[in-house]
Amino acid sequence: MGEMAVGHNDTRIKTGSIGSCVVVVLYDGEAKVGGMAHAMLPTRKERKTDVVSEARANININVAEAVAKYVDESVDRLVKEIEKIGGKKERLKAKLIGGSSMFRVLSGDKHGIGYQNIEAAKRRLQELGIPIKSEETGGTVGRLAELNLENGLVEVSTKM
């Protein structure tokens, strides 16, 4: 969750337990490099960090924010990381996994966070001109995903 990884050839990248988060897979079939990001929220919101409450509750977290917390930013970052190890943005193809809505109570009126995550990923990929090859999204189930970097195949499994 909030993490990303890139690699090439005989590597496999696996991520567990995807719920309403979205996993973006990018793969360059020619260079056989690619990567995966497991992002949590559609986009960074300008919010006043609640310094007062945090101070009052004496909460001070000193660890850095996860690299792939926001969908749009993690797509950008994933492209950059893949290019660093020999991939080309023009050759990248995307796959999307996740974005389910497991609890109706949380979906609210705007389709819930899962739907928003998928939309955010699609929007950013379109802006970058990266085609989406396939997606396994929505519904109410949790998923696991594993990317095989030799051929770009993604194995998605559920436990229900």
Partner: peptide, 22 residues
């Protein structure tokens, strides 16, 4: 819901994350 614990937690934390980093 009955599903993988991680997926449920992922969903719940995203909900909290909408409003707060911590």
């Amino acid at each position: 819901a009955t599903d993988m614990l991680g997926s449920v937690v992922d969903t719940v934390l995203a909900e909290i994350g909408k409003e707060s980093d911590i």
